[in-house]
Design a protein around this nucleic acid. Structure first.
Lengths: 348, 348
DNA sequence: GGGAAAGCTTGAAACGTTTTAACAGCGTCG
DNA sequence: CGACGCTGTTAAAACGTTTCAAGCTTTCCC
């Protein structure tokens, strides 16, 4: 029979008693607030040290801050999010803020809503949402309750800050790269979008739109071919098989992101096609794996660490009181590798 | 100037007033506690619905439960953890519990300690730690404060539950597989362990130990070669280069986990060696990518989703009051693929 | 030396929930 | 018919912190 929590938690009152001051005094020292003499400050700090006191976050949440920032991300699985999170933690290190993560159920809008409510109910000081599906109007409601940064969406709002990659520029880089290599039939793999209202400014929609635009600008409107699956290995695999079934089949695929591109490479391997001899493949995100010699996937680099760091910085600024909305955009760069090459001589 | 939080949160008192009952009554309905008539229950539920009331987690934390379970994981980047988390969320769906994640800084022990404290201070109802580095004694301290499940470690403790893969069996499967293919010089890639005390029963230590044992049992003690880097793409790459520098070089590598194996494949590609012609490679975890046709990595499958589901179930049982410690172990299976093959004719 | 201002310190209220103990109402049993 | 036990309900205390308003020194100025 494990006795649960036998010794009571050290509270601010214990510290106060031990340091022979009032609880208010201790609270002030803890928060570096005005009205505590250096002498008292030292005495209280010594007591805190001696007793091993740690503030009780829940109790703090009742009145003041909780020193917690909530991060909502669609799914753990995407390695790009790991970069973003590294940036966030890097920026938070040294402050007294802690990041807690909640996973929002991929393309499940209801699950995402629950996750957001969970963060609000847990009284975090601010929320960072990574590529949320939720409608803009709801985001603005949330930002009325607490500071909010949205990472990866392009819409302009005066209520919350936005940090995003210039997906339009990045996509243009890839598609032009393929066109300059002589490709004309370039396929694209995109994601299903669950929201039924106005389309959101999510990366996959921007990338699909820009893909269409650039194709069109080069007189390739007739060659536009989009497979709508999902940006996972399986999605890339399925999407590629769908594109391969076309006749004539594409000579290049812009897979939308790296994970889908990995699936595409697998599908092509299985179909006995060589890369880039028979088919060029490009991804997006420049994940670590894309850089590996045996994969060598052409990709677009968006600095995820920088985005995460910036998002965290903006969020802390908001928590500290900044009111005006800000936007921060990262300019992507093309990283050409061996998965893309000249288009094969056309036999159609 | 965004007005922050203009309308007060709906509280239990508002609900009580609206339903013409006491706050206690509302609380009872919320917790499905004894002592509320069906009629009252209905009335209160209607009021909750009408007002859109949601319980304030921080306030709850002051007295009762917070309906939150904390998950500590070393790093987001490992795709195996994504499986585990899927299992956890699957098990939690339908309950009123929410999982929150905290990232524990990879191999940084101090960062992990801070993350654990953060969860305790936030008063979660229970903690699930995935492959923590923290000393057993500290884990037992933590489990005195709140229910704890440790996933991925083998030690036996009467204080907390353990869910783990039988790494010993899994490793034996791989190493025997390679030996049966005729390999004698089999290299291994392991991770550095930060703890300086008694070695912990962490997966990478068990795997390394079993690798030694099986090699020894087959009279291959002299051929043991371990590169200690880390289980990441970079670590696998570096470790493989280290192993390749040996003379004579190994004919097979058991990379420890899939991510390291991907790095190994890249290093071999770069060195101009064919897989499995010149060198066989095996991983562990059977990630999605390992199954892709172009990679086709031999790996060991441990059912991460099942482990996550089980861990969450055990944790909820603990939260509900179970006292006796339990252990749950998953039996791994070998998934042979094209990255392993017969040893090349020995020229040394 | 008197009074105001400034600086430091404090008790008590507040936050939103759960829990404890007590209280009516009502039937039952001795 | 009074004591008793059940049921449904309630008022009030408790949780650990922050904040408010007020109290107490000390300092400074005229």
């Amino acid at each position: 029979m494990a006795e649960r929590g036998p010794r009571r938690r050290v509270t601010i009152a214990d510290v106060a008693r031990h340091a022979q001051v009032s609880t208010t005094a201790v609270s002030k020292v803890l928060r570096n607030a005005y009205g505590a003499s250096p002498a008292m400050r030292d005495r209280v700090k010594a007591a805190i040290e001696e007793l091993g006191y740690r503030p009780h976050a829940a109790a703090r949440a009742m009145r003041g801050r909780t020193f917690t920032i909530g991060v909502l991300l669609p799914h753990i699985r995407n390695p790009f999010f790991a970069d973003v999170l590294d940036g966030v933690n890097e920026q938070l290190a040294g402050t007294s803020y802690q990041a807690i993560l909640v996973q929002g159920g991929g393309t499940d809008l209801a699950a995402e809503s629950r996750a957001i409510e969970a963060l609000i109910d847990r009284q975090v000081d601010g929320i960072l949402m990574i590529a949320p599906l939720t409608a803009k109007s709801r985001l603005e409601e949330v930002s009325a309750e607490m500071p909010l940064i949205v990472l990866g969406r392009h819409e302009r709002s005066s209520a919350y800050d936005a940090v995003f990659d210039d997906d339009d520029a990045g996509t243009e880089l890839v598609v032009r790269h393929l066109i300059e290599l002589g490709h004309r039939r370039i396929g694209h793999i995109s994601q299903r979008c669950p929201g039924r209202g106005r389309p959101l400014a999510l990366p996959h929609l921007t990338r699909a739109e820009t893909y269409r635009r650039v194709m069109d600008e080069h007189g390739l409107a007739a060659e536009i071919a989009i497979a709508v699956t999902s940006w996972t290995e399986e999605g890339g695999y399925d999407g590629t098989r769908e594109l391969l079934a076309r006749s004539p089949r594409p000579t290049a695929i812009f897979a939308g992101d790296d994970q889908a591109a990995f699936g595409a490479l697998a599908a092509l391997h299985e179909a006995g096609l060589s890369v880039p001899g028979d088919m060029s493949v490009a991804g997006y995100d420049n994940t670590k794996l894309a850089a590996m010699a045996n994969i060598s996937l052409t990709s677009v680099d968006q600095d995820g660490v920088l985005m995460g760091r910036t998002a965290a910085r903006l969020l802390l600024e908001r928590v500290e009181g900044r009111a005006a909305a800000m936007r921060f955009s990262v300019t992507p760069t093309l990283v050409p590798r061996r998965s893309t090459g000249p288009a094969p001589a056309d036999q159609g």
